[in-house]
Design a protein around this nucleic acid. Sequence first.
DNA 1: ATGAAAGCGCTAACAC
DNA 2: GTGTTAGCGCTTTCAT
Lengths: 337, 337
Amino acid sequence: MNIKGIAKLAGVSKATVSRVLNDSPLVTEDTRKKILEIIKRVDYLPNYLARSLKIKETKTIGVIVPDIGNPFYFEVLRGIEKVLDKKDFNIMLCNSDYNDKKELRYIYLLSSKKVDGIIVAPCSEESKGIENLLTWNIPFVTFDIPQTKLNTNSILVDHSQCSYIATKYLIESGHKNIVITDVFRHTKTKSKFILGYLKALGEHNIPVKQEFIQEASPDIVGGYNIIKKLITEKISFTGVITICDLLAVGVYKAVNKFNLKIPDDISVIGNDDIPLAKYLNPPLTTIHQPKYLLGLKSAKLLLSQIQNKNHNDIKVIKLDARLIKRCSVKRRIKNAS
Amino acid sequence: MNIKGIAKLAGVSKATVSRVLNDSPLVTEDTRKKILEIIKRVDYLPNYLARSLKIKETKTIGVIVPDIGNPFYFEVLRGIEKVLDKKDFNIMLCNSDYNDKKELRYIYLLSSKKVDGIIVAPCSEESKGIENLLTWNIPFVTFDIPQTKLNTNSILVDHSQCSYIATKYLIESGHKNIVITDVFRHTKTKSKFILGYLKALGEHNIPVKQEFIQEASPDIVGGYNIIKKLITEKISFTGVITICDLLAVGVYKAVNKFNLKIPDDISVIGNDDIPLAKYLNPPLTTIHQPKYLLGLKSAKLLLSQIQNKNHNDIKVIKLDARLIKRCSVKRRIKNAS
DNA sequence: ATGAAAGCGCTAACAC
DNA sequence: GTGTTAGCGCTTTCAT
């Protein structure tokens, strides 16, 4: 059943039916009632594809994240959903799998499906997809990963600041041999996360050891494997900083496996502060990321871009992260390594 | 830019452009190349709204879950995403918030947006939205919650079996005063989860106490509040079974708060086996739900429904849950309460 | 207040 | 192999 059918049944024109569907005041109460009654009776469902094609608005937003299985992104998603739902937007959710090609493909797909805007956590600092969005003039905002070459609407947390705080805390707690695990980057340049670590080390005149800088897949097994590798290679360290809490969970697992204790033998600091971090054994000391807020702000910024059509003024909002001290870091005697 | 514009630039008709866009063999290599070149040069993006309107297929699936913040659902979502992505479908994600009205609204919305099918975890056993899907003849599958009045395609785990296993294990470990926390149901009839508990109690001739049967919101604070209430009301119990692991985490928190110990003072069994359950302190004994599989099977079943148009043969697939014994249950001396 | 008609961007007969 | 044309189901201007 379509608008034409309803019109025929009601003995009016398509235009009139369309008007009642859109709550136009230009219809008498009588005809409105009659049409509404028929609509209900025949279970009529408007076709929003046709509508969207005409009015050039779909009321749907595309969201691209690297990994829907990571609690970090889920918390962000909750924030996004919260504001979008209130404004009657739907979310088209895409999982880029930390894969540039897949991200690009989704950007094409979402654009072709005519979403009103896109929120994306890019896989890399030079996302090809983002460039396309710019040339196609599609409203979008990025979060979490800043773009080095492009100036885009974005909600960010300074990753170098996060690792800097964590490293500094470990150093001040008497640690010198500190492992840091980043996520696989597939790039030659050092990530911001590593940069903050290096900065803290430098400020305390602690020499950098290459074998302490590791990359892993951002999940539990990734963390497990790194520690297993390090221990079997007899590389000695007393602290580890992970780029996400999931990785820290893997570290816990590996440390237990080798009959070591956290924090007595190994201290660990995570990053994210996922809901369950405080319930781990021992409770995880971590850098708290404002995940929900990240989502909330991203969605709000996007909505304002869509409404104002002010494609010119780029907004970059920086959010703060902070250290949450729990029980996975041990204070060591000075000069001990 | 649209297909007409490309046609003009290439000096051909819209039909020819459409043909190359759809990889039709009915185009000479020369014209194909010329058109492809122009498409690339002008950054042309096909409009899938128009396409979908015409061919009556959107390549998008709606997914409705009660709470995207619950690890249970996002594990399911991962399974769904896995199979849908492979078949080039997009996911429109909706959060019903355990709210019937919202669920119904989303079902209308998704249907109007002409998704090719819907996967839904209904909030209740008598979802009004599902009825609509049936009358509109839209392919769909439900999971997790069975519908009492309707026969629908679904992937299920027997909830009564889950609570039965958990209760039985607790009883056999010497517990008699066992609290069970269901989720708010807003219905008069007992849920399957409570039914399984009652059955196990009955089989062991343990009298039912109404104050042991509780309802909570399915999150950490929900679990916390229940235990707090019970303890301050001086109701004594030694075991608790929660309908989801998140609730169990809240129980842990409350038990600690009152300086009690798990499992020495209180034994707890969760339900779901979320990824972090084994890393809790102590590791949570829980009923493992095949979450990922639930998603995988749901998506596959939906896809087969969409392809075959066999709207007639309803498939119900039952998956098994199993008890994962970890460390949150203590064996008690017989006859102790 | 209502209707006629054009058009959103695409596909698919059908004709040549 | 390519073009013409008639829709898909809706909105919206312009008449009346």
